[in-house]
Design a protein around this nucleic acid. Structure first.
Lengths: 206, 206
DNA sequence: AGCATAAATAATAA
DNA sequence: TTATTATTTATGCT
């Protein structure tokens, strides 16, 4: 399924402002502040050449599933939205089951993460995934969803070669922006699917 | 155990055809035919109002041991793949110790079964219940309605963690007096809703 | 009548 | 094989 990253992107598109009331405060939180933060975050993110998805994935690893890309995006996006809403429309929060507080909580997390990312970048250590300290949590990895483009390329490769070499896998991973292991597993699953066909066909069941 | 169906469904999604060589023939067997058959089978299955799981179970009775929904799904999916393989790569069959001939065996089995199923259906016999050997009174679970208090707690948890662990879910279920599965599903749906929200907001719809 | 969303099904990553 | 995501269905409520 299509899952466009939206850590900050939803915030970038300047939609027609519904109500530009300057003092947009809910629960003692200035929604304009959050809006500004979201914009700044995007600039810094782009400065590092990172995609929203990359940030989301990194956060979900370092901060736990509570900060999935979806959750963060939604929280920030709704803040942006809210910042544009007139005060009487702000009950949209209730409809969305998102409190202004939740977005406020995310802010420091994003700030801390971005700071570290920028430091790593400055010190020349290249990739984001490098400083992801995998917590000793034995939780199952979150299911990744591939883009149609990625799947197209993967399938094309599979068609040519069902057993890509290590180098090929690494190349694909880099090219597509996924972790090497994810790509490797994809080929495993794909081969397995093919094998299942064999088993079942030989029994004449499928 | 989770057992959702996939007898044929995987085949429905029209992936970008990699190799549209019209003459995809091995050993006198047109692989495109198999692909077409899979599509047609799905239509007929849906016409009878049957799930992949039901077909799988029925087949396991007449044809052999049961296969999980997942396995059957991937099996047919890979059949689709085979139909897309370019001719020079079709030695993949050899690597897997399978001949296109064995693939050909699939068709008659399914066709025979489906034909009988449709005849039963046409003659109006018990909605195929005896034929597919399912319990006829498999009613949909009554929709649970959560108390406002329960929703409050659930939302609070969701805000902290959109992916609660099994233990957490069990704890919540016990604490609130709902079935564990109900709580699990609630989180699934909640995550989905969040995703939809994000999608819509990013499109400026909300 | 239509909406919100719980439940069920389908697909597939781990 | 298991667990999660994606999609669809259908029900309780207004």
């Amino acid at each position: 399924m299509r899952m466009s990253g939206c850590i900050d992107g939803c915030l970038s598109q300047d939609q027609p402002t519904i109500s530009q009331s300057s003092g947009n405060v809910v629960d003692g939180i200035n929604l304009e502040d959050i809006k500004e933060f979201a914009k700044a975050f995007k600039l810094r993110r782009l400065g590092l050449g990172l995609t929203q998805t990359q940030v989301g994935q990194a956060l979900s690893v370092t901060e736990g599933p509570a900060y999935s890309q979806s959750a963060i995006c939604s929280a920030l996006a709704s803040q942006m939205l809210a910042a544009q809403l007139s005060s009487q429309q702000q009950n949209i929060f209730e409809k969305l089951d998102i409190t202004p507080k939740s977005a406020q909580k995310i802010k420091p997390v994003l700030e801390r993460w971005m700071k570290e990312a920028e430091e790593r970048y400055a010190s020349g250590q290249n990739h984001l995934t490098d400083f992801i300290g995998m917590e000793p949590s034995k939780k199952r990895k979150r299911r990744t969803s591939f883009t149609p483009q990625a799947l197209e390329l993967l399938n094309a490769h599979f068609e040519r070669n069902t057993h890509p070499s290590g180098t090929e896998i690494t190349g694909l991973a880099h090219q597509l922006g996924y972790e090497r292991e994810v790509i490797r597993i994809w080929f495993c699953n794909k081969r397995q699917a093919l094998k299942n066909t064999v088993r079942m066909m030989s029994k004449g069941i499928v």
